[in-house]
Simulated assay, not measured.
Amino acid sequence: MTNSILLVGVGGQGTILASKLLTIGLMEAGYSVKMSEIHGMSQRGGSVSTHVRYSKDTVYSPVIEEGEADMIVAFEKMEALRYMDYLKVGGKVVANDFKIESMVNLTGQADYEEAEIDKELNRLGAKLIKVNEIAKELGNEKVMNVILLGCLVKSMNLENIDWESIIKANVKPKFIDINIEAFNKGLNLVG
């Protein structure tokens, strides 16, 4: 059976690093893994998505079709809503309860209807977590992505992989300790 995880966010939030850590961990655990990134205008705050598919059997395609994602991990809550069509029935959603206004919002061409977004995500069963606030408490907002990775690992029952070694091998030495702490925080945020 192939599992499909969609990670979505806005450029600069660390979506790609979280996907890379996930992919490396899955490969080291013996899974067949395919990953595909879509950057969009990521350098200008645009949408970023990564498809990760894994199985003990061979995975042939990295692309997740609509209605096929076992889990969506959203680094920004509007991005969670934007990609909900990809979630399969019974799938899980963990979303950072954080907003980043796009250019159309900032220029007044459209409103960021935060209350409506929250209401719809709650109706759809998304777990909203104030991940950025937790990252601030740890002392570095940039570890938000690793907190969400911890949430994903716990939600998908992937705790048996040596994530600490993977973080140590793929994060700059001066940020290893805070990233391990962030990952462990994420593990404890979901049931």
Rank of each mutant, 00 (worst) to 15 (best):
M103L: 15
L81S: 04
K92V: 09
G91R: 02
E141Y: 07
L149W: 01
N145Q: 06
S42W: 09
E113G: 12
L128G: 13
I147E: 01
V104Y: 07
A115C: 12
T107W: 10
E66I: 06
A69S: 05
L81H: 06
A115V: 15
Q109R: 11
K88W: 02
I129R: 04
A80V: 09
E66L: 08
V143D: 05
L128Q: 11
K88Y: 03
E120L: 12
L81M: 09
D70T: 03
M84S: 09
N140G: 07
K136P: 03
L121C: 13
L81I: 06
E141I: 09
S47L: 03
E76Q: 04
M78Q: 11
V73T: 06
V52I: 10
E137T: 09
M144H: 10
G40Q: 04
K130I: 03
M84D: 06
I134R: 07
T58F: 14
E65A: 09
V48G: 04
E120M: 12
R123Q: 13
N96Q: 08
E65G: 04
Y54H: 10
R123D: 14
M84I: 12
E66T: 08
G40V: 03
M41H: 08
T58Y: 14
R82G: 01
Y112C: 15
K136N: 03
E113F: 13
G46A: 00
E101V: 08
Y86Q: 01
V104Q: 08
E79D: 10
Y54Q: 08
N122Q: 15
N105C: 12
G45N: 03
E116K: 14
N105R: 10
K136H: 00
Y86S: 02
D97I: 08
I129V: 15
K119G: 15
A110H: 11
V104G: 07
K56R: 14
V104P: 09
K99E: 12
I72L: 07
A110G: 10
S61F: 04
K119T: 15
K88H: 04
A74S: 14
L106H: 08
N122A: 15
A126N: 10
N140D: 15
E114D: 11
T50A: 09
K136G: 00
N96M: 04
K88P: 04
V89R: 13
G46W: 02
G139W: 03
G40F: 02
G91M: 07
F75R: 03
V52M: 04
Q43M: 12
A95E: 08
S61V: 06
V73N: 00
E114F: 06
T58Q: 14
E133G: 01
F98Q: 01
N105T: 12
K119Y: 14
N132Q: 15
D111I: 14
E113R: 15
L106T: 13
L81T: 06
K130P: 00
S102I: 08
E120T: 12
L128M: 14
G108N: 06
L124M: 13
L87C: 05
G46V: 01
L149P: 00
E137R: 10
G67F: 01
